[in-house]
């Protein structure tokens, strides 16, 4: 099953089993069913609880906050990650603050879902991965969609806890098939699950057992798919063995699974599609360098997009966003 269908089915299951769940978002109602068709069919079956909204990102985020404060479990679709800037004040100064600011008298478990990333030629304001601006906001969890973890598992966990969440869906995942990590989809690669400490697991992917790997790659979103492909190709063609770690939650980072891998490989590459610097890779590099000071074989390598706008033209876009070769090259270097 492709990811967008799995996600749509997840939202349907949540609506069916939890009357507190409300979906809000621009153009999410039928027959359109959302810009990426994730919610198709849901407004027909749940007309009061699946609401298409005006083009008002700040207000719908804030309305979700009011619903959540009153005990509902709103899930907002922000049509493009680029538009999350319009929700930023609501997330930072309202939603993520309420619990602690009011001395835990209330909870505000809003979930924002948003399609992110390039590769589709949508240009400078419809292609960005802006999640780095939300990393580190106290009491906000940032979770990344993945082909390796059933979204129903992820959303069930998110609904069982009380912190607000930004759930980032890389657009290139939508048409790709979910990978059954325990099944026959990819018999070549070894899949594992480190349940970690944050409630959401980290998936491990490699061609050979961890003890034979000489580099850990920490990646999420479409970057995780590229990294997994690179791991296979490098193993077959160059006998370079990498272990890919795909965390469901990218902030706060669940360090346990990463530490367990880096303790063996003693080398790390991070992969993200946001612009380079001041981001996820920077923080992971700083933390891992501190935790493994003296035992890393080489500095942590971070792969990210160029610090520039994302062009619409395909050939220019490809120059800015990390591609398979850039990731493979970083792994080669780090595996030495």
């Amino acid at each position: 099953m492709i990811f967008s269908r799995a996600l749509g089915n997840t939202l349907r299951a949540l609506l069916e089993r939890d009357p507190r769940v409300i979906l809000l978002g621009e153009d999410i109602a039928d027959p359109y069913g959302g810009a990426f068709k994730v919610t198709r069919g849901l407004s027909t079956d749940f007309p009061d609880r699946v609401r298409t909204t005006p083009v008002s990102e700040a207000a719908i985020t804030g309305i979700a906050a009011g619903l959540a404060l009153e005990g509902f479990r709103p899930i907002v679709e922000v049509m493009f990650c680029d538009f999350t800037t319009l929700c930023f004040d609501q997330v930072l100064n309202h939603i993520a603050k309420y619990g602690a600011m009011y001395d835990h008298q209330v909870e505000c478990p809003v979930i924002l879902r948003t399609p992110a990333g390039g590769g589709r030629g949508y240009g400078p304001t419809h292609s960005q991965s802006l999640e780095k601006h939300f990393l580190g906001i106290p009491h906000l969890r940032v979770v990344a969609a993945s082909l390796y973890l059933d979204p129903l598992t992820v959303f069930s966990q998110l609904l069982s806890q009380s912190e607000p969440v930004l759930y980032v869906e890389h657009k290139l995942l939508y048409p790709l098939s979910m990978v059954d990590a325990g099944g026959d989809d990819s018999p070549e690669l070894l899949f594992g699950l480190d349940s970690g400490e944050c409630g959401l697991p980290t998936v491990t992917i490699s061609a050979v057992p961890r003890r034979e790997c000489t580099v850990t790659v920490f990646a999420y979103g479409y970057g995780a798919v590229q990294a997994a492909n690179a791991a296979w190709d490098l193993a077959i063609e160059e006998e370079i063995f990498a272990e890919i770690l795909v965390p469901a939650q990218i902030a706060p980072v669940d360090w346990g699974p990463l530490e367990r891998s880096v303790a063996v490989t003693r080398s790390l590459v991070t992969v993200e599609e946001g612009t380079a610097g001041w981001g996820w890779g920077s923080e992971v590099a700083a933390q891992v360098s501190r935790r493994f000071f003296g035992s890393l074989r080489r500095p942590v390598e971070s792969v990210a997009s160029a610090r520039d706008v994302i062009p619409a033209a395909r050939h220019l876009e490809q120059q800015r966003i990390p591609g398979a070769e850039a990731i493979a090259q970083a792994i080669r270097e780090a595996a030495r």
């Binding site: 985020t61 309305i63 404060l69 005990g71 309420y98 001395d103």
Partner: peptide
């Protein structure tokens, strides 16, 4: 930044408006 049953306040002006509307939506639902 105050909170009591049925009462909240926050210091970023207009940002409270949608939360108040969301609470009204909860009451309506």
């Amino acid at each position: 930044h105050l909170c009591a049953p049925g009462f909240k306040s926050n210091g970023v002006l207009g940002g409270t408006m949608p939360a108040a509307a969301g609470i009204a939506l909860a009451q309506q639902l």
